[in-house]
């Protein structure tokens, strides 16, 4: 408690550097590991060029087809809600924009805090819903691994500590903010080594998918 400010400065200083380095090394290693493998030459006469369908799938796969939506509405809607909420809080909250500006030097307009607050609350609720769903749905329960629960926990903690810090529900504030930053750093460190990698690789995967189908004349 009396070390709250020291803790905050540690999370903002050395720990941030460590997290950032592990994240960057891990992620780049991961991406290079994927791309270096390459693809075998395809000799089959294509119906279409694969680039455009690939990029189209990168976008279109964000929305579920009507049939899937009908069969798994909860999965689709809750997945959407929490992803959007998470991204809004991550990318459009002014302090986060300042952080990104401080690190990468780029910035964009943010949203008013009450809007972010609302989305954060919604995100928290939907994250709880995803956990319940993961434990209750036979398929999800069956395919879930320790990693899935671990990743859920850290994502939830990142959002929760952010919410607590914003509302200053943990005292003193430096402790609350430090916990939030630390959780975000653990998130960053875990990212390249867990399914969190999908934040980056899902777009690669979608492109490969769209390209493979597109070459055969199907928009996947």
């Amino acid at each position: 408690m009396s070390q709250a400010m020291d803790f905050l400065l540690w999370t903002k200083g050395p720990m941030f550097t460590i997290a950032m380095v592990i994240f960057a090394v891990g992620l780049l290693a991961r991406l290079v590991e994927i791309f270096v493998l390459g693809r075998a030459t395809n000799y089959a006469e294509p119906r279409a060029n694969e680039w455009l369908p690939g990029f189209r799938t990168v976008l279109t796969r964000t929305v579920a087809d009507p049939g899937t939506f009908e069969r798994a509405p909860f999965n689709v809607v809750v997945g959407w809600v929490w992803h959007i909420g998470f991204l809004m809080a991550l990318l459009l909250f002014i302090p986060h924009i300042e952080l990104i500006k401080g690190v990468l030097g780029i910035s964009w307009p943010g949203l008013a805090n009450p809007v972010i607050d609302f989305f954060t609350a919604v995100t928290l609720l939907s994250l709880v819903a995803t956990l319940v769903h993961r434990m209750a749905h036979p398929v999800k329960r069956h395919i879930s691994t320790v990693e899935d629960y671990l990743v859920w926990t850290i994502v939830f903690l990142v959002v929760l500590t952010g919410y607590l810090a914003y509302h200053r529900l943990v005292s003193p504030y430096p402790l609350a903010l430090g916990m939030h930053i630390l959780c975000a750093e653990i998130f960053l460190i875990m990212l390249p080594f867990t399914k969190l990698t999908h934040i980056f690789t899902a777009f690669i995967a979608r492109w490969y998918n769209g390209a493979a189908f597109g070459r055969k004349g199907v928009q996947s």
């Binding site: 493998l37 693809r39 049939g67 999965n75 399914k195 999908h198 690669i204 995967a205 490969y208």
Partner: peptide, 22 residues
Amino acid sequence: EIDAPTAAFFSSCVHCGICAQS
């Protein structure tokens, strides 16, 4: 058999279970 798409696919799976619904 492992190539770049396979690696990208496995890297991306989040165990959402939607594939079962198809």
